[in-house]
């Protein structure tokens, strides 16, 4: 039983690695599917933007409201904008936004490609002179790599505005003073690693969503399983990447 689970797990890792290799092999060769890539960018941005924006605002508000009493106890209330800004930009916003994208984009890719697989649409595409891997997978993965960092940057901005609102709930701080404190506290070493890991989050969410969809079997039941598995695996991998980024950052002393 345990050996079966281990076999399946190792098989899955092997298949995913082969899928990733195929992505790197085919992703940079012509024919480039610019129209489909733009459509996927629009889909990812359009579908996720409202959710990411609202969550960003709430994250900023909540973190500020919850940090205020602790800092007040140490007489360090004036540090509130700096502390909140660093924790939001370095860790909270990238991870929470990536988790939202894993749920929203990962499941959508898994379900859409899975359903195309079981209804033979992928075969039909191949018969129509299209490389389905390039048309469906490469475009989606590149769209996720591009759009998820952009969504994270947007969410960072909205979260900082949420933090400004949170600070102003109990005291009056001008936006000018708040933003001055935020930008003084944020260094290049806070922003860059967060953006670099956002690209990895995008790649992981895109490739796992597509892999699960592309390897769907067992009809409509398999489609549901693919969507579910895409979300669970993406979330897990987002945390792994975050852990690795923290470790690498620590070693390079930029975090």
């Amino acid at each position: 039983m345990t050996s079966n689970v281990l076999d399946n797990f190792l098989n899955e890792i092997g298949e995913l690695s082969r899928f990733m290799l195929r992505f790197f092999r085919e992703g940079f060769k012509p024919r480039y599917e610019f129209a489909e890539f733009s459509r996927q960018c629009f889909n990812i941005g359009n579908k996720t933007l409202p959710l990411v924006a609202i969550t960003g605002l709430i994250m900023g508000l909540v973190i500020t409201i919850q940090s205020q009493p602790s800092l007040q106890a140490f007489g360090a209330e004036s540090w509130l904008p700096s502390v909140v800004a660093v924790s939001l930009v370095r860790e909270i916003v990238p991870v929470i936004t990536a988790l939202i994208c894993a749920g929203k984009i990962g499941s959508s890719m898994g379900a859409e490609l899975g359903s195309m697989k079981v209804t033979e649409q992928i075969d039909a595409m191949e018969v129509s002179g299209t490389n389905p891997f390039k048309y469906l997978v490469v475009t989606r993965v590149f769209a996720a790599i591009l759009m998820i960092p952009l969504l994270i940057i947007l969410s960072d901005t909205i979260a900082l505005y949420g933090a400004f609102l949170g600070v102003n709930m109990k005291q009056v701080v001008s936006f000018h003073l708040f933003s001055n404190q935020v930008f003084e506290s944020l260094s290049f070493g806070d922003v860059l690693p967060s953006i670099i890991k956002a690209f990895f989050f995008g790649f992981a969410i895109g490739i796992i969503g597509c892999f699960k969809g592309f390897s769907t079997t067992n009809g409509t039941q398999g489609v549901g399983r693919a969507a579910n598995s895409a979300v669970v695996t993406s979330i897990f991998v987002v945390f792994i990447i975050d852990l690795m980024a923290a470790q690498i950052g620590d070693i390079l002393s930029i975090l």
Partner: peptide, 12 residues
Amino acid sequence: GFLFQSNALYDS
């Protein structure tokens, strides 16, 4: 030409 069993029309 190939007519698929499930028609394989693109849903989107």
